[in-house]
Amino acid sequence: MQIFTCPFCGPRDEREFHFAAEAGKTRPDTTRQIDPETWATYLHAQRNDKGRTREVWMHLPCSELFLMERDSVTMEVFSTHPLRKEPQ
């Protein structure tokens, strides 16, 4: 079992957390015409990195989304941050 740290609530059981998405995707400007390739890339393409990853997770009890940096091989968690206070 693992303990993840919600930036808002503190360290909690891994079963309280839900993986949401890879971090860093930018939604195309939908007020303009978007070609199907760009839209498909936004919807479906994944970096799916082996090793260090940056992901958006949700802590289900408080429903807050946050950024988690972890290793996708060892499962070691490096840091968790609120999305609005993302480290530079």
Binding site: M1, Q2, E14, R15, H18, F19, N48, K50, G51, T53, E55, S72, V73, T74, M75
Partner: peptide, 13 residues
């Protein structure tokens, strides 16, 4: 396991 992984091992939940 609903967590992206290359770990080739499972988790307890």
């Amino acid at each position: 396991d609903r967590v992206p992984s290359y770990g080739q091992r499972g988790n307890l939940p």
